[in-house]
Structure formats: structure tokens, C-alpha cells
Amino acid sequence: MRYRSATLTGWLVLCIVSACAPASRPNDPIMPRDPLLLETHVQPYLDLACASIDCHGGDGRPLRLYSELGRRAQASLRPQPISNAHDPLALTKQELSDNCQAFAGVELASGPGDKQLALRKPLAASAGGMHHIGGVHWADKLDPGYLCLRGFLVGDITQDLGSVCAEATAKLQP
């Protein structure tokens, strides 16, 4: 009985500690396309860089993405216009999961690792990228935006995912 109680307390403490810990630390191994990392670090960058309605939030676009400012899965998720007075609703778990699936689909169609189109299209041709109607977003593979997406999709960056994503997002803030 005492053993069961101690185990329960142990689990409780572990859960509390896990909840308080940041989603990623510099040397944590990254699980590719982890929805939690997407929500915490990557989605704010995607919101500004990729998922606007005139780009990957557009109807019928390859790699269609949901975002707070762009396309929502249902109209009810945007009950009022986003404005000074009204913030957007956070993405649902389903929308985040669908975004992960969208990236998985692109990887399946184009190849693993850094061959996947999501990493090559926004990259300058001189750095190994390819033509992208949305333009060149990353001059080279050291761009924080590239590292943010590569960390999320491949998981092999040495930098802290949270830091590179925050830096990439800050550069695009209106």
C-alpha cells in the first residue's frame, strides 16, 4: 500500500515537472513533426511566413496550412474579425495535426530529409533550393527560418529550435 502511494506521488511529481519544462531544450532530440513543437515554436513562424490566405492558406494550394490569421478548418473558429479588440482563437489540436499531416504528405511526395520540397522551395537556388512562386525566403541554410523548419521536419539541427523559430518569427512581425 505504501509502495503504491509512493509510486503515485512519484508519477504526480514527474507530471508536474514535465508540464513546467520548456517544450525543447538545446540538446533534446527532436521528434520530426511533433505537434507539440509545432504549436509551441513553429506555428507562429508559419502564421507569418507561409500560411496567409494568399499563400499556403489558399484553397487548393499544395501544402495547405491552417493558421490563426489565415485559413481555419471551420468558419465557427473565426467568430469575429481579428482586430485591435479581438485576438484570433488558438488553433485546435485537429488543425495542428492536419498541418503536420500536410508536411508529411509533401515529404512523402518529394523525398526525406533536406530533399523535401518544404525545405527546398523557400530556399535560394544558390543554396540548393528551387523556384518558389512565393519567392525566396531563406538566402542560405543558416537562415533562422530554414533552421526552424528543418528542426521541426528533420530534427537534425544543433541549435535550439525555440530560439531559431523565435528569431525567424521576430523578423517578420508587422
Binding site: 502564421d47 507569418l48 496567409s52 490566405i53 494568399d54 499563400c55 490569421l69 489565415g70 481579428i82 482586430s83 485591435n84 512562386i133 512565393g134 519567392g135 517578420l172 508587422p174
Partner: peptide, 11 residues
């Protein structure tokens, strides 16, 4: 003044 929170990329 209302500032658009996102960017216009092509439209």
C-alpha cells in the same frame, strides 16, 4: 488605426 497582424505575400 488597425494594423494588419499578418503580411501580404502576393495578393
Amino acid at each position: 488605426e488597425q494594423k494588419m497582424r499578418g503580411l501580404i505575400w502576393r495578393e
